[in-house]
Simulated scan of single mutants.
Amino acid sequence: MISYLSKFTFGLLAITILGTISGYCQVKSVSPNPFCEKEIVSWDYSSKVIGEDYTIYIHFPPGYDTTKAKYPVLYMTDGDWNMTVAMNCFNMLRQDYETTEPLIVGIGYGSRPNKRGEI
């Protein structure tokens, strides 16, 4: 029997792969949309395969556009809600530890309501 964590991991991987293949996904917004946080940009996508809309949120660390340094990447679902939470967690970590701020990618629900209660 496949565990819930395995199903979650497989689902996240499937969404990520489908989102990167341009034949299956159509960008609804050509340029990034401004977000309430100045450090976050977002793009709207529509999947032709499953007929759902998604919003992809990306937080770029300070100086990302002017360096060739490599950054760790954190991918997460429920990006509509979790982006600022993840950013705050890394800010708290930096207070006590020397850490590299990651590139944070959140997959949101687009124009649909969240599906936290569904299994």
Rank of each mutant, 00 (worst) to 15 (best):
M1Y: 05
S3K: 11
S3E: 06
Y4V: 09
S6G: 03
S6E: 15
S6H: 06
F8C: 10
T9M: 15
F10H: 09
G11M: 15
G11W: 15
L13C: 08
A14F: 04
T16P: 05
I17F: 11
L18V: 04
L18G: 09
G19C: 03
G19Q: 06
G19A: 04
T20W: 07
I21A: 03
I21G: 01
S22R: 15
S22A: 08
S22P: 12
S22N: 11
G23R: 12
Y24T: 12
Y24A: 14
C25P: 04
Q26A: 07
Q26G: 10
Q26Y: 03
K28V: 11
V30K: 13
V30M: 08
V30H: 06
V30I: 12
S31C: 07
P32W: 06
N33E: 13
F35W: 06
K38Q: 14
E39H: 05
I40T: 01
I40P: 01
I40Q: 03
I40V: 15
I40W: 08
V41S: 12
S42T: 06
S42A: 10
W43Q: 06
D44F: 05
Y45W: 11
S46L: 07
S47K: 00
S47L: 05
V49S: 08
G51T: 10
G51Q: 10
E52I: 08
T55L: 04
I56Q: 03
Y57K: 04
I58Y: 01
I58V: 14
H59D: 00
P61E: 13
P62N: 08
G63A: 07
D65E: 11
D65P: 02
T66Y: 05
T66S: 14
T66V: 13
T66G: 04
T67I: 01
K68L: 15
K70S: 15
Y71N: 01
P72W: 07
P72L: 10
V73Q: 04
L74M: 10
M76C: 14
T77P: 02
T77E: 03
D78S: 10
D80L: 02
D80Y: 00
N82T: 07
M83H: 07
V85Y: 14
A86Q: 11
A86G: 03
M87W: 00
M87P: 02
N88H: 12
N88K: 14
N88Y: 12
N88G: 05
C89W: 00
N91I: 03
N91M: 01
N91C: 07
M92A: 15
M92L: 14
M92Q: 12
L93W: 01
L93P: 00
L93D: 03
R94A: 14
Q95C: 08
D96P: 00
D96I: 08
Y97T: 07
Y97Q: 09
E98F: 07
T100K: 12
T100R: 09
E101R: 07
E101G: 00
P102C: 02
L103G: 00
G106K: 01
G106V: 01
I107P: 02
I107W: 01
G108A: 01
G108E: 03
G108R: 02
G108W: 02
G108D: 02
S111L: 10
P113Q: 11
P113Y: 14
N114G: 08
K115G: 10
K115V: 13
R116T: 03
R116Y: 11
R116S: 06
E118Y: 09
I119A: 08
I119D: 05
